[in-house]
Amino acid sequence: MIEAYGLTKTYGKRTAVDGVTFTVQPGQVTGFLGPNGAGKSTTMRLILGLDLPSSGRVLVNGRPYAEHAAPLREVGALLDAKALHPARSAVKHLSVLAATHGIRRSRVDEVMAMTGITETARKRVKGFSLGMGQRLGIAAALLGDPRTVIFDEPVNGLDPEGVQWVRNLTRRLASEGKAVFLSSHLMSEMAQTADHLIVIGRGRIIADAPVAEILAHGQDRTLVRSDQADRLRAGLAAGGIAFRELEPGLLEVSGAEPRKIAWIAREHEALIHELTPVRASLEEAYMELTRDDVEYRSAALAGAGEGNR
């Protein structure tokens, strides 16, 4: 479990994380979404105490990370798959980490087998592909069989089979009761993996809700093709229903069910020959959320512009 309270981090004048408060619950996968530079990695570094917060605090499993007697048993983290010495072999890299906690050698073999890097264990990690590097990073994170797992963009550089593997792994870790905190820029990935989403934009939490709820935020729409589009337009307008004309004869209607649209078309004697419901994707919901944030921010900056100069 991770609990952040008013977590803020500024680097000079730039505020990377701005008063962030959230909880990552055990037994589920919590997705951490946000555009590049939104503060995802900084937040994760703050959780592990790699960066010290400018204000606020963050607890993992009830206390600051560094205060645990066995930190690797509390949190397993993959923040940066390249954060290792390139001339050291994978098995030595893991042995170093295991040694800090007196973790037995057989566990090193276990996590290597689990992540499929046993065959390359004795090679210098210098020659590892991005995907192999990610697997090694995940192996390192799992070494202490931690109760909380933090993965920053774990599917980066993985092939489709690897992506599937990470998805199954995170689901399994959550089902074992662990708190899984996962950042990714792949929204579709989150839709399939996460139970709960925390969306961050420009250092602030934009949304913190179950995936289903966030999905509901994105509006469902219906594509309608009609030979009498003008009549249909008039009917929709009369009913106060929002729509866009994508191309002549093709309308994208939001805020009305297909059945309702069909009734309106019938009333206005417009023939419709296509009526396609379009489910909002998580990606769209996410774009919707962050677009609001970006617009708000831009406006705010424009207003503050004079003061900065």
């Binding site: 592990l48 930190p71 923040l79 954060a83 290792l84 010495h85």
Partner: peptide, 17 residues
């Protein structure tokens, strides 16, 4: 070299003290 390779991140995650 730990700072150069960013290994220091891994080191200080394993040994946060």
């Amino acid at each position: 070299s730990e700072y150069g390779t960013r290994m220091i991140t891994t080191t200080l995650t394993a040994v946060p003290r």
